[in-house]
Design a binder for these strands. Sequence first.
DNA 1: CCGGTTCTTTACGCAATCCTTACGCCCGTT
DNA 2: AACGGGCGTAAGGATTGCGTAAAGAACCGG
Lengths: 230, 230
Amino acid sequence: MNAPSLRVLIIEDDPVIRRFVRSALEAEACEVFEADTAARGEIEAGTRQPALLILDLGLPDRDGQDVIRGLRTWSQVPIIVLSARTNEDEKVRALDAGADDYLVKPFGVPELLARVRAQLRRSALIGHEAQPVFCFGQIEVNMIERRITRAGEEVHLTPIEFRLLAALIRSHGRVMTHRQLLTEAWGPGYAERSHYLRIYMKQLREKLERNPAQPEFLLTETGVGYRLAG
Amino acid sequence: MNAPSLRVLIIEDDPVIRRFVRSALEAEACEVFEADTAARGEIEAGTRQPALLILDLGLPDRDGQDVIRGLRTWSQVPIIVLSARTNEDEKVRALDAGADDYLVKPFGVPELLARVRAQLRRSALIGHEAQPVFCFGQIEVNMIERRITRAGEEVHLTPIEFRLLAALIRSHGRVMTHRQLLTEAWGPGYAERSHYLRIYMKQLREKLERNPAQPEFLLTETGVGYRLAG
DNA sequence: CCGGTTCTTTACGCAATCCTTACGCCCGTT
DNA sequence: AACGGGCGTAAGGATTGCGTAAAGAACCGG
């Protein structure tokens, strides 16, 4: 089923489950990497460039949602979350943070593998381009370090400003609707508040554009949304 | 106003669940279509071109796996399966048949919506080069980036102009009646106002045709509607 | 508890878009 | 030749959406 060298990264602190998942995946001819903390996991995700990521939500060093959101700023790798918590709210938050699937422990190996296959099948249609550093004009955006420089000078962005910019970068060239941007930067409950966008786009332009009144990169598509030139 | 809302198709025989899922999705500003059998579902999937499909496995007229496989022969639309069966084998077969997610009844609305969002988010990333670019003459229309170029030069269209062009492209070659075009571009309340069409077709021709007075592509079918040559 | 940062709310002028109105042309019918 | 339906063309007013500013509310670290 799987091509021989499909890389999968497991981020999980429990060595028993890690071993368990690893052997299941290796039976599917995947190349498996492991990490036992979020910090190590992020580094591995950057260096190994896995095709799929299996993430335990209960890591010792950082909150699960946080880890997902961090990964999502620079990578589109499919993420399957494992968690002992059946709590619906937990599921929703993980999925909205950017996870693609959520599997409750204990789970059966066949189901895990089937969900892995489903995610890989889907992402094979997409075309993989994880870009930890993105540039336009004099701007350089490092998604991993969350740092932006403009002509070498560091630019400070607030969390929402950064999420907005990250969303635009992820689909640079393409128009993102108001609804999409609001959902990505604020969350699914804010889809109607398009006036927020005007304020934050203004701030982003103020910080990034040469002439904020006539933007070169952060472009308006009236009645639809915004678009990052590319 | 109305951002281009995402179309979702529910194929489910139980009217209670159908209603239930519909209202949940409509709260998320989706445009919802329904079908109560696999046969009708397949037709709807073809004509409506939904962005997401929610499929009950226990349909009266055909086996669930079969339906999925049938759809997958011609469509890559994300499919979320609903089923009363918790049986792991059932899950594996549905996922391997081509489903993207599997949700066991009874499920909570928040989880369903979160999984819907996850699937839509994922499928919105469909590759830049891989997908629908329509060409006619020197015109190139990229539906995903929402950009139009004419001989390489970018052409700006207003939201209504774009929807009108998109409707014509969707049935390129065939005639679309005034009523159909008005409904697609303005909404169901505007079916009678055919004078709008004259104005906007004029503008489209002005922007796209070599000689707007003698259109090569945006053709009039007197007394009926318009047609995109192709 | 305080000061600073970030987020949210409110308000208004301007620009893009949409809608309305008007008129002229072509063409088949009377 | 006059008429009317259907369409194309033009221009201006109405509406909506966007950019901008500023101030209050919530949040966070000390």
